[in-house]
Computed example of a mutant assay.
Amino acid sequence: MTTYRGRMVSGGHLQIPLDVHEELGLADGDDVCLEVVGGELRVRTSTSALARVRAMVRTRVPADVSLSDALIADRRDDAARG
């Protein structure tokens, strides 16, 4: 684990060192997810946050089940019932 030093600047903006930008693959204007855990700030790329959510869902849904297909089937059933 590498520790970096950033800086809080006017308007509540946090300056993140270029090395961190590069390591996370961030570009100006990219969205990130911020999480406060135990008094610490965690910054994740949107891509890594989405991958984390997908992994959590996969632990609850069998690999051979398509949630989108199940949702479409439910909607069609609802529509058929009127």
Rank of each mutant, 00 (worst) to 15 (best):
A55N: 08
L26D: 01
T45R: 00
L26S: 02
G39Y: 02
M8A: 05
R7W: 04
R52V: 14
S48C: 07
V37S: 10
P62M: 05
D19H: 00
V9G: 03
R75W: 11
V65Q: 02
R44F: 06
M1R: 06
L34Q: 08
A79S: 11
E22D: 14
A80N: 06
V61F: 04
G6Y: 01
V36K: 00
M56T: 10
E40I: 09
A27I: 00
V53M: 06
D77V: 13
V9H: 02
D31E: 10
E40D: 15
S10N: 12
G39H: 02
L67W: 07
S48Y: 00
A73P: 01
V61M: 08
V53N: 03
D28V: 13
V57L: 15
I72R: 04
T3F: 05
L50T: 09
R42W: 11
A51W: 02
A80G: 06
H13P: 01
D69S: 09
D78L: 14
L41Y: 03
L18M: 05
Y4T: 06
D64E: 14
D78E: 14
G6C: 11
L24E: 00
R44G: 08
L50I: 11
T59V: 13
P62T: 07
D74K: 13
H13A: 15
D31W: 02
C33Y: 00
E23T: 09
M1C: 10
H21G: 07
V20I: 13
C33D: 09
Y4C: 06
R81N: 12
L26R: 00
R60K: 14
I72L: 14
M8E: 06
G25S: 03
T45E: 08
Y4G: 06
T47N: 09
V32P: 00
G38A: 12
D19T: 09
D19V: 10
V20E: 07
Y4H: 14
C33W: 03
P62Q: 07
S48V: 08
P17Q: 09
